[in-house]
Amino acid sequence: MSKDLPDVVKALTLQASVCRNMGSPLNGDLLDRAAADWLAGGPVKALMAPWEHADLQGQFDAAAPLRLIGSWHELALSGDDPAVARAYKALDADAIWAAVSIAMVARYDRLAAFMAHEPQTNEVRRSICLLGGFLEVARMTGLPLRCFEIAASAGLNASWDRYRYTVGDAVWGDPAASVRMDTAWNGPPPAVEAPVKVIERAACDRRPTDLTDPAQSRRLMAYIWADQADRLARLRAAIEVTLANGLTVERADAADWVRAKVRPHTGAATVLYHSVFWQYMPPESQSALAALIAEIGATATADAPFAWLRMEPPGLAPRMDIRLTLWPGGEERLLGHCHPHGASVEWLGGPSP
């Protein structure tokens, strides 16, 4: 890749490579075409204008390339543009590009409005990455869990204990669960024998997804890559579980909500958790929230422990780190690394260096 290319084009090209490596050749092809279109002054340039002057880190922090392909997929799922819908149903890259090239001009306002909203992927398979952390808290404390998720989107991962998992040679969860998932698990199994009982759960998001609204449910599905049918099926099943259990994601700023709602509670382990959220906050907000979490941790006791579990990317690395900090004590542990969509987990379970 030429060093002289604009960062917006580098981001589109790099995201194309990431998509291919993560099992979506279709989006790899489409994003390469988008990069060429931007350089030619085509309709992609207008849609990507809000990020045109962002550096490469800024492009990925905002997930700008994913917003672009998400906008096309949402249009296809809506059925409002028959040509785009037909092309996506056939998973034909040539047909998709021909159709979206027209739509990017004819439906610019709609696509730009979609892209103005930060991604809320709510990938259900991230639960299999977080599972080991929840089990570790249960094992270490021997207490029931109170689970609080920030940046929860639609709250699908707030139902993590209602799903069925296969992790290497081990299994965990309800055998009758409608949401089932496995992963390429490397390393020792997590603490599947630890007794787990979730006695309280709550979630917040700055802009929560209302699953009773078809348009908002469709937004979630739009960020699932169109050539990955298993992910789409899992998402639909998780939506049904969440609706059936009546979980409501509260509309709130993460720091305000944590300050108001999250405190250690005697007789339970309180777990604050999040996934693929930290990168979307400015550095000052990250520092403020981390300080608040440490303040809460300082109030924890042996019979009222507090845990901070997170799955977040270390910079631009194409993987996520799973980290757990448990108070009292405040020891931070690097539990493992994982694929951003949960397709693989390298489980360490030991202390961080």
Rank of each mutant, 00 (worst) to 15 (best):
G132I: 02
W97S: 13
W185G: 03
M281T: 11
V124E: 01
F114R: 00
A238T: 08
V276G: 03
P189D: 13
V258K: 01
D227S: 12
L326E: 05
Y223R: 00
S17D: 10
A304H: 06
W38S: 05
G132R: 00
L243Q: 09
A34Y: 07
V8H: 05
A300F: 08
W308F: 11
A152M: 08
R180Y: 00
P214F: 12
M22Y: 09
Q57Y: 14
E331T: 04
I293V: 13
Y108F: 14
V100F: 11
L247E: 08
G173S: 04
A154K: 02
L12W: 03
M48W: 04
S101E: 04
A49D: 06
L75E: 03
A237R: 04
D169V: 03
M311R: 09
V276Q: 00
A202T: 09
D253Y: 10
A260E: 14
K261T: 09
E240Y: 04
Q15L: 10
W185P: 09
A62R: 05
K89C: 14
M48G: 03
D4T: 13
V179K: 00
G297S: 05
K3Q: 15
P214I: 13
E295H: 08
A291R: 07
S153G: 13
P264R: 10
K10L: 15
D32H: 08
I296A: 10
R251G: 13
C338K: 00
P144N: 07
M281F: 15
D32E: 06
V276H: 03
T183G: 13
P353V: 02
E346G: 01
A113R: 10
M140K: 10
A151N: 03
R206Q: 06
A49Y: 11
T212C: 15
E74W: 01
P264W: 14
C147N: 04
S2N: 10
F60R: 01
A191L: 14
M221G: 01
L243Y: 12
A152T: 02
H341W: 07
G315S: 01
A98E: 12
L131Q: 01
G70R: 03
S127F: 11
L135W: 04
D210H: 10
E123V: 05
D7S: 11
W278N: 02
M320R: 00
W97D: 07
G155A: 08
A191K: 07
R67K: 03
G173I: 00
V137I: 06
A307Y: 00
A63G: 08
S71F: 07
D161H: 14
R139C: 06
S217K: 07
L143D: 04
N157T: 07
G142Q: 11
G329F: 05
G187V: 07
A252E: 12
R180M: 02
L5M: 12
K89I: 04
